[in-house]
Computed example of a mutant assay.
Amino acid sequence: MTDQHNEHHPSEHFETLAIHAGQPADAGTGAVVTPIYQVSTYKQDGVGGLRGGYEYSRSANPTRSALERNLAALEGGRRGLAFASGLAAEDCLLRTLLVPGDHVVIPNDAYGGTFRLFARVLERWGVTWTVADTSDPGSVRDAVQPRTKAIWVETPSNPLLAISDITALAEVAQQAGAKLVVDNTFASPYLQQPLALGADVVVHSTTKYMGGHSDVIGGALVAADTAFGEELAYHQNAMGAVAGPFDAWLVSRGIKTLAVRMDRHCANAERIAAMLVAHPKVAEVYYPGLPEHAGHELAAKQMKAFGGMVSFRVKGGEDAALAVCDRARLFTLGESLGGVESLIEHPSRMTHASAAGSPLEVPADLVRLSVGIEAVDDLLTDLREALA
């Protein structure tokens, strides 16, 4: 299982790969869906005689292996790895890449949990970091230091939906001898392929669009290089924060409908962003699909569509933003994103509370929407009433 890339026909489209790549009919029964191998250990044919490479399910499990092959195919990578959460995937990646004294460039707009991992955990172990505006390659280049080992990017970013030029940043990383890490959670591999644009490794919270139904926690890494993928796999096994069989199965099931769901997420988000731009109580809208968005042209170039996330600032400050969150009905007040149901949240007090007082602090009047796949007219009515 050292190279998971070319198991499919090169002409197959994403929608076909999502359903079939790494997911052959079960050899024992002919089941068309990979079974849940809810098993901890495996019979060996003599000492060290492993059947299919399986000995213990922390090291490998058939259900998880099927998901990992699928992830590699969808991202166009050489090795996919599935974890118990997105942060578990990030932790494995960073402990594979870094030793005390190393340096990382991190974005000025990123998930609060990612910032917390750098600022509250890795910093204690001697890893340093510098914040840069990753939408400006020059800013990233200026932030690079002699011991920079990784440049970390979210595009679109969380929660301000900034767009970063993956190809340009890959050149900066290569010149610095560093890895370019792209968190592709907001876009999903259906909308964006960072490895094809020069990234070294992709990170996902599979909890979000990949799972798609708010019923599983998971994470993933996909490496462009086989050797680096093997390093990650070694640390995955050594550290042990792997996806369980049932969680891997749920993510695999979600991926099969990723394309059709993302089409609806994007279409709904475009309608909602347009409504918010025209609303008298909205001060500013962040959505890369808007022509006035600073990253619109770049997003149109490196993404298939503009995604299902929309953020906006409310006139009247924090209290007005909190009131909108409280009054929404179809938009459920809750953290996370990417599920079929629409969610609304106040990042400053919720997902990004850990960034308070830091360069990543978000505006207190900001509201973030994860636009679901409900009837868009119902969602528009709900937001208009919440803003009224």
Rank of each mutant, 00 (worst) to 15 (best):
L67R: 03
Q4K: 06
N268S: 07
P347N: 11
I106W: 10
G229Q: 05
T332Y: 06
G77M: 11
T114M: 12
R264F: 03
K149R: 15
S188W: 06
W249G: 07
G138C: 04
G334M: 11
N268A: 07
R261L: 01
T185M: 06
S59N: 09
D377L: 04
D26T: 12
M239C: 01
G112R: 08
G46S: 11
G48R: 12
V140E: 07
N108M: 06
S252C: 00
G244L: 11
F331Y: 15
G76I: 02
W125I: 00
T167N: 02
A18N: 02
T130M: 01
V153T: 06
H265Q: 03
G113E: 13
S348V: 00
A18D: 03
R69C: 12
A388Q: 11
G289P: 04
D365E: 15
H13K: 13
L258F: 10
G212S: 11
V153N: 03
A60K: 13
P24E: 12
A66K: 02
G295H: 07
G308M: 07
F186A: 15
D326Q: 15
I217M: 08
A323R: 14
L197R: 08
D200K: 10
L17P: 05
L97Y: 10
Y190T: 04
E361N: 04
Y209N: 13
M1A: 11
G219S: 03
Y54K: 07
T128L: 05
A187P: 05
K281V: 01
